[in-house]
Amino acid sequence: MTAQEVADILKQRFPVAVADAAVEGPHPCVAVTPEAWHEVAVFLRDDPRLAMNMLRCISGVDRHPEPQIDVVYELIAMRAPGGAARQEPRPPASAELWQNGGTIAIRVRLPRDNPRVRSVADVWPAADWLERETFDLLGVTFDGHPDPRRILCPDDWIGHPLRKDYEFPKEYQGIPAAAAPESDSSRVTK
């Protein structure tokens, strides 16, 4: 299934929530409003035509100085041989190759000053750690997450390092930090 077909199905089912679909280019992406995202996620997983059963990646992209943070979800449909859309708990090991049933990326645009979106950890358990990482590094709050803690930085870390306006700490727990990195442009080879 092509990204265009996935986008058409989504647009038909959620005419309001699907803001726009940029399916041209190397990264086909459908933008969904934050309020509707959880409902769209359940549909993406459960609709037999789509059956996006694996959440591969969640990336947060800070659009600073625009007041916006994007959360991008990468999905893929893995089709069992024989066409079963959802797998039985433990089918016998099959000698046949699974099929790639199509990929799509979903973009949720959030305001930079208070980025909040409903967690999809109940839809795809893989989202549990991926959302914790996005919270840790970009400060996006996932409502309804089962374990909303930092994951890579220490629990008492201040700030979210992947924000574009993040200020490097001068010290941590009394340990002085190394000299602050130079500005972005000076590090690029001319």
């Binding site: 959802r86 797998q87 433990r90 358990p125 893989a126």
Partner: peptide, 10 residues
């Protein structure tokens, strides 16, 4: 690890 779990957890 079952097939369903393996896919769900990525």
């Amino acid at each position: 690890i079952s097939v369903a779990d393996a896919i769900a957890y990525g």
